[in-house]
Amino acid sequence: MAIKGPAGWFQALGASALGFFERLGRGHLLLFSILGRLPALVPRFGLVVQQIYSVGVLSLLIILVSGLFVGMVLGLQGYYTLVDFGAEQSLGTVVALTLVRELGPVVAALLFAGRAGSALTAEIGLMKATEQLSGMEMMAVDPIKRTLAPRFLAGFLSLPLLAAIFSAIGIMGGYIVGVQLLGVDEGAYWSQMQNSVNFWDDIINGVIKSLAFGFVASWIAVFEGYDAVPTSEGVSRATTRTVVHTSLAVLGLDFILTALMFGEP
């Protein structure tokens, strides 16, 4: 089968391109069928609540701890950079803008991919491997509606909340380091922040970013699980792919969204 030399090389290239487009197509078809089934979840919101627990609540601890430390590091770094210009009063602005615009949505999404996305993929992949999805189909229960759609919706709803918590805790962390330890004026920390952080331009755009990341991260996680080769090796590969693809997608999307939102003065 395998042709050697340049011809074989082109053959492999063509095959992998075909495989890529095939997966892209399957991913979108799955997304459409998930989106089409979301209205059916309204009367059964209990399913979504249960998934918000495993996707959102169980990610809380890592989000809280990382948020606090990221905020504290920002406070420290920001202080030592700003104090050279005598501008340590602006520490609040630096910490808040960094978190609300970028680090909150992005780092929360990366942590989400590692904590919740990988778990979602592994769970769905194992359900496929142990014939649970197929069993549901034979019980006349649509697995996309019963299993995938609630998980997708839960991820999509949880990430913005996690990102907001991350930013809020981070700002508190910056406050602890900047104000309590390094002696920045407390009033300046908050008032400078309030003066330069704009609700619509910064906070709402941050929320929009995290909604977009939540959408993409949940989609990738659910698709990789559903599309996994139903063996233990296949599921482990799918889990890795979820983390890698979500991270890349989040960072790429972040660039595009940032350019769109903050590009124009």
Binding site: V100, S167, Q194, N198
Partner: peptide, 11 residues
């Protein structure tokens, strides 16, 4: 957290 960002952090 969102409320805090809106009220305490932003203008």
């Amino acid at each position: 957290a969102l409320f805090m960002l809106a009220m305490q952090v932003s203008n």
